[in-house]
Each structure stands twice: as C-alpha cells, then as structure tokens.
C-alpha cells in the first residue's frame, strides 16, 4: 500500500502521527485499517515481551504489539486514551499497534526523511515538522519480527 502511494506520488506520503511515551512516531495512513480502543487481550504463550496478546477483530484473530515495549520507551500505564492502530501489511498480515495517543496527520516528503543509525532498524528515519521530531516506523521490520520471530522455539 505504501509502495502504491509512493509510486503515484513520489514525494508526499500522508502519515498518521501518534505518541508513544514522550515521543512522536508516524506510519503511512494507507497501511492503517482502523483505530479502536484498547481492550483486554488474551495472553499468548512464548510470545515476545512486546506482544500484549491476541484480540478478536470481527472474527479475525490478531496480535497487539505494545509499541512502548517494542521501542524501549517507558509506557504510560494508566492512560485512558491508549488506542490500538490496526495495520495491514502488504502481504495481508493484520496486527495492532498499541499507542498512547493518535494526535495528527501529516504530509511527509519522503526525501526529507533522515536515516538514523539504529540497530534494530525499526525506524526508517526521522522527519522534522516545525520543531517536532517524528520517527518513521518501519512496518516491514515489525511485521517480519512478529511473524518469523520465533520459529526456532
């Protein structure tokens, strides 16, 4: 989906901006399927620590990733505004990202994304809008870790 957007409009991608802890992150809006409130999840055995558990989205079972844990950020435990952003990957895998707050939408020029030397490569880079720094989440990494992460165990 993001690729399609990039192909037709090489420069500008619409992003949805949310906060996790103190920082802001964004993902392409076209990969977002819906946003829903956080509800009780079912714990999954042997799941990575950042997986909250599974939820039922109208008959589909999907896992919710606690982005705060995933990104090594102090989570805001009792934040009532926490929402799950349901994301669908290019190969059809649906999963949820638990974020603290969805705040904004922004047009991001791909060329202005500055890469970061981050080891886990969970970010494709940083963009600055005004004086805000926003991390661009690399969804491909997230989903591949989610799906393949633990075949050996």
């Amino acid at each position: 989906m993001t690729e399609a957007a990039e192909a037709t409009d090489a420069q500008i991608v619409k992003m949805i901006v949310f906060t996790v802890g103190e920082q802001e992150y964004c993902i392409p809006i076209l990969s977002v399927r819906e946003i829903r409130g956080f509800e009780k999840t079912t714990a999954l055995p042997f799941a990575p620590h950042y997986v909250c558990g599974a939820i039922n989205l109208r008959g589909i079972i999907l896992t919710v990733i606690d982005l705060a844990v995933y990104l090594n950020i102090q989570p805001q435990a009792n934040n009532p505004r926490r929402v799950v952003v349901i994301v669908e990957s290019k190969n059809g895998i649906v999963y949820g990202l638990l974020v603290d707050r969805v705040i904004d939408m922004a047009d991001v020029n791909i060329d202005t994304i500055q890469s970061v030397p981050e080891e886990g490569s969970s970010l494709s880079g940083l963009v600055t809008i005004g004086n805000r720094m926003i991390g661009v989440l690399r969804l491909e990494t997230v989903v591949s870790q989610l799906v393949e992460g633990m075949a050996s165990a």
Binding site: L62, Y95, E148
Partner: peptide
C-alpha cells in the same frame, strides 16, 4: 477454529484459536 498463524506465527503447544 480460527487461525492464529494467519496474522501471527506458530505457537508451540497451540494449534489455533477461537472466539
């Protein structure tokens, strides 16, 4: 029976999920 693997991965000791 609902598949877990469709959107996740195989979990040892778990075959599928249900609602």
């Amino acid at each position: 029976i609902k598949s877990i693997e469709k959107n996740y991965r195989q979990i040892p000791g778990v075959s599928a999920a249900t609602i």
